[in-house]
Amino acid sequence: MFARVNLYYTVLRISIAERLVYRVDFALGTLMRFLPIVTQIFLWDAVFQGMSGGIKTIAGYNNHEMIAYYLLTMVGRAFSSMPGLASSIARDIRDGTIKKYLLQPIDMLSFILMSRLAHKLVYYAVAVFPFALVFWLCRDFFKGWPDAGTILAFIASLLMSFLLGFFMEATLGMIGFWFLEVSSLLFVYMLVSFFFSGQMFPPDIMPYPWPQVLKIIPLQYLAYFPTAVFLQKVTGAELAWGLAAEAFWVVFFFFSARTMFHYGLKRYSAYGG
């Protein structure tokens, strides 16, 4: 048991060292990533200004909340996005690197999860500065800190969004066992998740029944749900149900990734790779 932990700790450490080498890219890339937010702020400002009438809200969002929404989805995506995960799994399958996991006494999904975790930790270590800077600059868009319970729920939803994003992408990558060319599928996933996660705009602003539909799909937990929790758009029983549903999806995709890996590997060794 101890050896196991030690092994994964080593994987984590090596991955961290590897990622740190690229820290300039990280810092630059993270700052650049906020540029679209700047234009979003101005765009929504203009949209709200252009509205007629006294109380200017869109689907329950006022101007400040709308900006806060976009800023917070960035946090959500920082946890849930897994750049290149599915495509690297599919590539490993295609070029046979996957055999490595058959030979070494290490479980592939745990290994990839560890290196992703390392990747994310280093990312946060560097990204926390630009994030803090941007949020401090934009502090007026927020109504102040929410209560402790909300913050706890927010953190829980973020952590689960990391796991959900990971297992969803891993599941997608496993499709590579059955189809050689998955890149176009992945592109579709990218577009769909950009839209359905609420990263592009809050699903609430769509006409009935779209918001209801979007909130059934697990993709909303990648960005919309954590954001809505922080902004206290979901509270009370709805919040509890939301967290439970998110946990359910994490478990669901955990098993789906495992199952696909299991059967994929069987198929792979049956065909000899």
Binding site: L43, A46, V47, F48, Q49, M51, S52
Partner: peptide, 9 residues
């Protein structure tokens, strides 16, 4: 544009 008629006032 469901909510506004103009981008900016």
């Amino acid at each position: 544009f469901r909510f506004t008629n103009s981008i900016g006032d």
